[in-house]
């Protein structure tokens, strides 16, 4: 079980309210990602759920019991920290066994569980090493192992991949997803990287300044962002925004078009501009086109083999079904 309900919770540090009243429902077995720019309160929210911080008001419900006043150790949650927070003076085995030792399990039971977890995580050969002798990816797995052995109601991940290099990050992303597939335990995952959010989540919670901007599946957020912030935050490269005359044509204050929904041509199209930088990635080519009346270059995603060069005049046409319209509050117009 691992159903978590946040009921009108708030958090203030002194006079500063970092989380205004907030409701959220996390279902058993769900992989939920909190995503948002740094300082949006996503880590604070995770720490509130963990019990490492007190809520200022409101209630946290875990599996039907009010956990608001329960200390972190008793909530049945396990956490993987950004720095991994391994105990440097203990071997890998002792690190993983620590929560079991605190729970008062006997030595044989501890060993059995540690060995099982080590096998799943490919750590069997490293059990007698100290964390300092491990690579970043291995440390990450030890931290996960320490969380797994407790068989928690839910796993909490606080930006667990941000200290890894790019290649390893992709690997660990897959491993965590696979772990979720096999354990089917609730996972709450905090990241500022929308790619991680899109690739891993069942449900994404987009936060800004402590406020939930939108909750939904990755594709819901991609196709129907509720406002300009979500539209700009989800998707890579970022959505292009057009204002003024461009938008009023569509009865909106702002329109947004994703780079992959613009077609580009030498000869004709709706808007024209000059090619600035073009990035050739092989599979794709990203063109940055200067369009008069648009402050930032318009990003266009094109196929790998296109013959546009710096300074060429090109014509852009948006896919009419894929235009996102926003009112002057930044909210989506249906």
């Amino acid at each position: 079980m691992g159903q978590i309900t946040l009921n009108q919770i708030t958090k203030s540090f002194g006079d500063v309210q970092v989380i205004p009243p907030l409701d959220l429902q996390i279902n058993d077995g769900e992989f939920v990602v909190f995503v948002g720019p740094s300082g949006c309160g996503k880590s604070t929210l995770l720490r509130l759920i963990a019990g490492l911080e007190d809520v200022s008001s409101g209630a946290i419900d875990i599996d039907g019991t009010d956990a608001t006043e329960i200390p972190p150790a008793k909530r049945g949650l396990a956490m993987v920290f950004q720095s991994y927070a391994l105990y440097p003076h203990m071997s890998v085995r002792k690190n993983i066994a620590f929560p079991l030792r605190m729970a008062g399990l006997d030595k044989a039971a501890q060993d059995a569980k540690v060995d099982a977890a080590a096998k799943v995580l490919n750590l069997t050969d490293y059990l007698d090493r100290r964390p300092g002798q491990l690579s970043g990816g291995q440390r990450q797995r030890v931290a996960i192992g320490r969380a797994i052995v407790r068989e928690p109601a839910a796993f909490l991940f606080d930006e667990p991949l941000s200290n890894l290099d790019a290649a390893l990050r992709v690997n660990m992303r897959l491993e965590i997803s696979e772990l979720h597939q096999s354990l089917k335990t609730t996972m709450i995952y905090v990241t500022h990287d929308q790619v991680e959010a899109m690739t891993m989540a069942d449900k994404i919670v987009v936060l800004q300044a402590g406020v939930i901007e939108q909750v939904g599946s990755p594709l819901e957020l991609y196709h129907t962002p509720r406002n300009r912030f979500v539209a700009g935050f989800i998707g890579s490269p970022k959505m292009n925004f057009f204002m003024g005359a461009f938008a009023s044509e569509y009865n909106a204050a702002t329109i947004g078009v994703r780079p992959e929904h613009l077609s580009v041509s030498h000869t004709d199209g709706k808007w024209s501009g000059k090619v600035g930088v073009s990035e050739h990635l092989g599979s794709d080519t990203f063109l940055y086109v200067e369009v008069d009346g648009v402050s930032e270059p318009v990003t266009v995603r094109s196929t790998g083999e296109v013959g546009f060069r710096h300074g060429d005049t090109v014509h852009l046409t948006p896919d009419p079904d894929k235009i996102h319209r926003f009112d002057n509050q930044g909210l989506r117009i249906q």
């Binding site: 972190p72 620590f98 407790r150």
Partner: peptide, 27 residues
Amino acid sequence: IPGEILEAARMDGATLKEEILYILTPM
């Protein structure tokens, strides 16, 4: 000493005494 390590101990079920005795002091 990073505070996260002590928080990890707290999450792992260590009491304050255990946290100071088993984690902080050895470190």
